[in-house]
């Protein structure tokens, strides 16, 4: 569908897009004609937004109705979560989120739901938290970092986005494992972390591979290590912490969630048509173009992954005294 319209030029494409949006093709879908909303608990323009848009651009053909991406970053993402939680349980309102607003918030914030109220429909991808620095910094490897932190405890400054987020928890876990101490400096996000590191204001930082892959390839940044079981496909030369001898692995994911009370058949239909859409040549081409590394998991596998994450995040938060 996208390939067809991309041949159209200019205003015709815009009109075609509007028409497409208004006239869904597969009317045999159990979802009827009402649009599906993919609600993201973050602002527009980020990785989750961009990834969700691949689905919204390709899945209507397979799912039936039109699919909109709605961004609600209010209340640190909890507004989006609560909005989906309170929407009618008909599969038309879904949450696309990493573990922060669902798993971590479910532990540390006062919310009216618990982790069992969420049902994974599908997982887009796994994100591997990566430690990096600038190339002229004395720390250039995991070993350098450990040596520097042992020689002068509490002197290495480490930038990460929001506290307890997916690029901070791995650091906490690593420190618990090794007994090392660093200065944790929260930033407003990946962009700020990166400019503070490049400007020499911070020593190390954590981010996700896709956002630094180009700079690492061109020698502007050094990726030191990845907190995952296996190396990242976009940073093939960067070792994992496991390879360096530290059993610390805390990959993040990006899942589509429905609430627990959505009927089983609806979840299955959504899972099937989402997986089918993401396997289409258009979706694969788009995924490659945006470097999203989409490797979808079905509902059952995603559920296993989700429950494992709830388990491990709970353990970390208990170990640092954040929850009882």
């Amino acid at each position: 569908m996208i390939l067809n319209t991309s041949k159209l030029k200019g205003p015709a494409a815009a009109i075609a897009m509007t028409l497409m949006a208004l006239s869904p093709i597969g009317s045999a879908s159990p979802l009827g004609n009402d649009p599906i909303r993919l609600v993201i608990p973050f602002g527009p323009g980020g990785g989750s937004d961009i990834t969700a848009r691949v689905l919204s651009a390709t899945a209507p053909e397979f799912c039936g109705p039109r699919i909109d991406v709605v961004s609600m970053s209010g209340a640190a993402g909890l507004e989006a979560v609560n909005f989906v939680r309170n929407a009618p349980a008909n599969g038309h309102t879904l949450l696309v989120s990493d573990y922060g607003p669902v798993v971590t918030s479910g532990f540390v914030d006062s919310v009216s739901w618990n982790h069992d109220d969420w049902q994974p429909v599908m997982n887009f991808t796994e994100w591997l938290p990566t430690v990096y620095t600038r190339p002229d910094h004395p720390i250039q490897s995991i070993e350098d970092w450990v040596a520097a932190a042992r020689a002068n405890p509490g002197t290495v400054t480490f930038g990460h986005a929001a506290p307890l987020g997916l690029v901070h928890l791995p650091l906490i876990l690593f420190e618990a494992e090794t007994g090392l101490e660093n200065i944790h400096v929260p930033t407003s996000g990946g962009g700020e972390t990166r400019s503070l590191i490049m400007g020499g204001h911070l020593d190390l930082g954590m981010t996700l591979p896709a956002s630094i892959a180009a700079e690492v390839a061109s020698g502007q940044l050094t990726a030191i290590g990845v907190f995952s079981d296996e190396r990242s496909s976009v940073l093939p030369d960067t070792p994992t912490f496991r390879e360096a001898g530290y059993e610390v692995s805390l990959p993040a994911w990006l899942m589509v969630f429905a609430t627990r009370d959505v009927p089983k058949e609806t979840i299955e239909h959504l899972q099937d048509c989402f997986m089918e859409a993401l396997a289409s040549p258009t979706a694969i081409a788009m995924s490659n173009r945006i470097n999203a590394g989409i490797t979808p998991l079905n509902s059952a596998d995603s559920t296993v992954l989700y429950q494992a994450t709830v388990e491990s995040i709970g353990t970390i938060l208990r170990s640092i005294g954040e929850i009882n």
Partner: peptide, 15 residues
């Protein structure tokens, strides 16, 4: 210069 989005608008252009 560095791939750093310095503002909401720059982030959208980056996207």
């Amino acid at each position: 210069a560095f791939g750093i989005p310095g503002s909401a608008t720059a982030a959208l252009f980056g996207a």
